[in-house]
């Protein structure tokens, strides 16, 4: 809101604009399809024209893989909804594309780009966001300060394209999410033990998902079942029965 107060009709029109903006943001939000998450996000889903940060909870390759799959599931659903492609920018390409396909991202839906360093990765992401023809843009970086995330946020808003920043650990003991950022939501993902099966074998993977910060809402944390081959998450069966209690626990954890 601007500090200069005008006459009545001016104020009214400004208010109408902001309400329309809010409605637009809610309309372009991308829901997870899981009531336990969507209900606690301010826009009822991820804002479709904003920056979101996803980081592994620990500097282990497993948590990085979980964070990657979490992001892959989101963009897979976006790509299917938009009927377009996703740009995936990394500085060191160690993704295994068959694994991504099992999260719902077939080869025809992703364009990979390899930047020489974090700066180039961010520049490539910005170009992709401003083009406005992509379903989403993902970048893997180690270092992204306030300026970089602000630029990405503006580019995402200009191109009406969601941007996902997959952070990687730079050094032991410093969580990448401890840096300041202009991201709308910041997530922290960790592997969680899967539910034991009655027979020998590994059950559906589970993640401990923690929303560290969101604009206009409260943080929360909960355990979800990993995305399936369409990129959809699910709540564990036992937690689904206790949805009301989980909300309270999440609010306390925040």
């Amino acid at each position: 809101m601007s500090a200069v107060a005008g006459s009545h009709p001016e104020i009214l029109s400004r208010l109408r604009e902001s309400v329309a903006d809010l409605c637009l943001r809610q309309a372009q939000a991308v829901p997870f399809g899981v009531a336990g998450i969507d209900g606690r996000l301010a826009d009822g889903g991820l804002d479709g024209a904003a920056l979101h940060e996803i980081a592994p909870a620990a500097p282990s390759l497993n948590d990085e893989a979980a964070a990657t799959l979490f992001a892959a599931g989101i963009v897979a659903r976006l790509a299917v909804a938009a009927g377009s492609r996703v740009l995936w920018v990394a500085s060191r390409f160690d993704l295994y594309a068959p694994g991504l396909e099992q999260a719902g991202l077939p080869p025809g839906r992703v364009i990979f780009a390899e930047g020489r360093d974090d700066r180039e990765v961010l520049a490539l992401m910005e170009d992709g966001l401003r083009h406005a023809g992509l379903a989403a843009v993902i970048g893997e970086v180690r270092r992204a300060d306030m300026t970089a995330s602000r630029r990405l946020q503006l580019a995402a808003d200009a191109g009406k394209t969601p941007a996902l920043l997959a952070r990687r650990w730079r050094r032991q003991g410093t969580c990448p999410l401890s840096e300041l950022s202009a991201a709308t939501t910041r997530w922290r993902i960790a592997c969680a033990p899967s539910a034991p099966l009655p027979a020998p074998g590994v059950g559906r993977a589970r993640w401990a998902v923690e929303l560290v910060r969101q604009r206009g809402g409260n943080p929360f944390s909960l355990t979800v079942e990993a995305c399936d081959d369409t990129g959809c998450l699910a709540l564990p069966a036992d937690a689904a029965h206790r949805a009301a209690a989980a909300v309270g626990a999440g609010a306390r954890a925040a």
């Binding site: 377009s84 492609r85 740009l87 080869p107 025809g108 992703v110 364009i111 990979f112 780009a113 390899e114 930047g115 020489r116 180039e120 520049a123 490539l124 170009d127 992709g128 083009h131 406005a132 023809g133 992509l134």
Partner: peptide, 21 residues
């Protein structure tokens, strides 16, 4: 949207071999 313009732009920044499926 036509992605070829984007691909050209990104290839101009990072090199043609940096973009792939």
């Amino acid at each position: 949207a036509d992605l070829s313009t984007l691909v050209d732009q990104l290839a101009g920044r990072a090199g043609a071999e940096a973009l792939f499926t």
